[in-house]
């Protein structure tokens, strides 16, 4: 009985805790479970969510991508600035290309050269933050024709009563889940994360698998930047600060193991959405906005702890 309880908590404990949290917030804050608030949360979550979908691939290969926070800032600045100079369509193309490009650069260093992922992407986080200031000259950028541009559709509009960014998140997740679970590349991602040596002995180009995982992470961050630019219709030089940890927290809260080899897109969607509702709930309960950083910390520690516990349990069992 006790062991069954433990097994249940290990598997569904976070979800059960989340359910309790939702109920208690709903009871004490009337605004929490209104459609307006839920859509607000979904809008907010869609940006980190789209990023987390790409980062999930990297994490399953057993690596990290901490550069996505600064990359989001850079790409948002680019999409807004290019919107003013090259028009929305061109701006989006350039942003996607730049995102993939930075992802590939990480991919070369981590995958092909074999440098430590933590260091490479942490350094990239710093480098890109610098690059943002070079690019923008230190001033914030704003979309000039914010009221008239069709660019607003990505962040501000609804379709069938659902926020467009939430739909973009959903579509990205569906495609990514298909790629991860059904394609050759997805299988290679799991194999490389599970056992890189055995993957090489099986003829899998593990370095290139890692490379493409980082490229994907760059692409999804670029999609997130388009949503962000459209939503804010501008970009401050720090707009993506801290997102790398929120994204990582969502991924591991969902249960994707930092040790590589296991995880899923749906878990990430669940994890990042839960995180969004927790932060929103705390705001509604009257906590200041910066409490979210504390929550991120708690979630990361808790999730990693449970992950390790499960691994140890498996070794002993």
């Amino acid at each position: 009985m006790q062991t069954e309880m433990k097994a249940f908590l290990r598997r569904h404990g976070l979800l059960a805790g989340f359910g309790l949290f939702l109920i208690s917030v709903a009871l004490s804050a009337d605004a929490f479970l209104t459609p307006g608030n839920i859509f607000d949360v979904l809008r907010q979550v869609s940006i980190t969510g789209v990023m987390a979908v790409g980062v999930t691939f990297v994490v399953i290969t057993g690596r990290l991508d901490l550069s996505v926070g600064s990359l989001l800032t850079l790409l948002t600045v680019i999409v807004v600035d290019q919107h003013n100079t090259s028009g929305p369509a061109m701006a989006i193309l350039i942003t996607l290309a730049a995102g993939i490009g930075v992802g590939m650069f990480n991919g070369v260093l981590v995958g092909l050269v074999g440098l430590n992922a933590l260091i490479v992407t942490l350094a990239m986080l710093s480098f890109l933050q610098g690059l943002v200031l070079f690019y923008s000259g230190g001033s914030n950028v704003n979309v000039q024709n914010a009221q008239t541009t069709w660019f607003a559709v990505f962040g501000r509009h609804d379709l069938f009563g659902v926020p467009v960014p939430a739909l973009i998140f959903l579509v990205t997740a569906v495609i990514a889940a298909f790629v991860l679970n059904r394609t050759i590349f997805g299988r290679q991602v799991f194999a490389v994360g599970g056992n890189e040596t055995a993957s090489r002995f099986s003829g899998i180009a593990s370095r290139w698998t890692v490379f493409w995982a980082y490229a994907l992470s760059g692409l999804t961050t670029a999609i997130a930047a388009v949503i962000m630019g459209s939503r804010v219709m501008g970009a401050q030089n720090t707009i993506g600060q801290g997102y790398e940890l929120t994204v990582l927290a969502g991924v591991i809260l969902g249960g994707t193991s930092l040790l590589g080899g296991s995880g899923s897109i749906w878990r990430t969607v669940l994890g990042i959405t839960m995180l969004g509702f927790i932060q929103n709930g705390l705001l509604l309960l009257g906590f200041p906005y910066y409490v979210q950083w504390l929550v991120t910390w708690a979630v990361i520690i808790l999730a990693v702890w449970i992950d390790l516990g499960a691994k140890r349990g498996r070794i002993l069992a």
Binding site: R187, F190, G261
Partner: peptide
């Protein structure tokens, strides 16, 4: 170390190469 991805099932290991 070299032969199997231990977390994967027998089927996925078999078709891996």
């Amino acid at each position: 170390e070299q032969g199997l991805v231990l977390m994967m099932g027998g089927m996925e290991n078999t078709t891996l190469p």
